[in-house]
């Protein structure tokens, strides 16, 4: 049953890639993506957005915690037709709550606080055999380290959850030139704006973990470890955490990248990520939807 569902999901992803990869035969008459992606453009980028995380830690609860929060990130991007490198750091914070069954007695809100810090490095190379005039395909790898901080006071000594998820991921990207090459009038009944020509790309990137490391608590979650007069409470909590190599993680992002005059750029990005972490004993599952608005400031290369 589950396998068939996963196959359905895979089929969906293939369908989506077809949409993004779309009609290459039409590309010849329109503005080329390569026009807007000159060799080795360097950007410093900064973004802000909304997050919608949900997680479930079977070590402490069978319930999903969900919330809406915000995220900020910063990083740098170096992009050329042949190669692309990205490094970014993201912080996401959200108040969370579990959906619990209705009570005939007293209602109770079970809440927690969730924060996530992520570091990501992506390196991509052009796939020349697939890339054509309007569509550029790239593939490569990503290194992605994520540290969660969860605080749920209702869980007593298990209030703090601090799992780490670090992955080596395979990455595929398709970037489609969706520029508007000429002015276009839009008829919206009372409002008839004229849209100016604009250079922009629609980019889809998919990351799939191939080496999935995670740092999770031991069998009983709480652990009474080595205690001395000088023991740090934080280290004491982490005493029985250990690394495992298992589970899966995937991340997809869709970005509409608009080039501005003067070499800068901005983009809207939708990011979806999911992870399943068995650890050594009990599963941790998490998904997150994010909408980000990013500004890119072109950096000039220092002359030596």
């Amino acid at each position: 049953m589950i396998l068939s569902k996963i196959n359905t999901c895979k089929s969906g992803l293939m369908l989506m890639l077809l949409f993004v990869g779309f009609n290459q035969t039409k590309a010849g008459n329109e503005v080329a993506a390569s026009d807007s992606v000159k060799p080795a453009v360097r950007y410093w980028q900064s973004s802000i957005g909304l997050s919608n995380p949900s997680y479930r830690d079977f070590a402490t609860s069978p319930l999903f915690y969900r919330g809406v929060g915000f995220n900020i990130s910063t990083g740098w991007l170096k992009r050329s037709a042949k190669k692309e490198r990205l490094f970014d750091m993201l912080l996401s914070v959200a108040p969370m709550s579990a959906t619990i069954p209705a009570s005939n007695y007293l209602k109770r809100a079970v809440t927690s606080t969730f924060a996530q810090m992520s570091l990501r490095y992506v390196q991509l190379y052009e796939i020349k055999s697939l890339s054509q005039h309007k569509n550029k395909y790239k593939a490569g790898f990503a290194l992605h380290a994520t540290q969660n901080f969860r605080m749920n006071r209702f869980l007593q000594n298990n209030a703090a959850g601090v799992e780490n998820v670090s992955n080596v991921m395979l990455t595929g990207q398709v970037m489609r030139d969706v520029s508007r090459s000429s002015e276009k009038k839009v008829n919206l009944l009372f409002f008839k704006p004229t849209l100016k020509p604009v250079k922009r790309d629609l980019r889809f990137q998919l990351n799939v973990g191939v080496l999935n490391f995670n740092y999770r608590p031991g069998y009983a979650f709480a652990y009474e470890g080595y205690l001395t007069s000088n023991t740090s409470p934080l280290l004491w909590i982490l005493n029985n955490y250990s690394w495992s190599l298992n589970g899966w993680r995937t991340q997809g992002e869709l970005e509409l990248f608009t080039y501005l005059e003067g070499g800068n750029a901005r983009s809207w990005t939708y990011v979806w990520s999911a992870m399943h972490i068995p650890g050594k004993f009990e599963n941790f599952q998490m998904a997150m939807h994010q909408i980000k608005y990013t500004v890119f400031f072109q950096r000039t290369k220092k002359k030596s």
């Binding site: 569902k5 996963i6 359905t8 999901c9 969906g12 992803l13 369908l15 989506m16 949409f19 993004v20 779309f22 479930r56 069978p62 319930l63 999903f64 579990a98 959906t99 619990i100 069954p101 629609l202 889809f204 997809g252 869709l254 509409l256 939708y270 979806w272 999911a274 399943h276 599952q285 998904a287 939807h289």
Partner: peptide
Amino acid sequence: PLMVITIVFSSCEKIVFKPDQA
């Protein structure tokens, strides 16, 4: 494509995780 991707990802999440056990 944006809508297709959003729908596919949202549905994937429900498929890959077992339902809430509340």
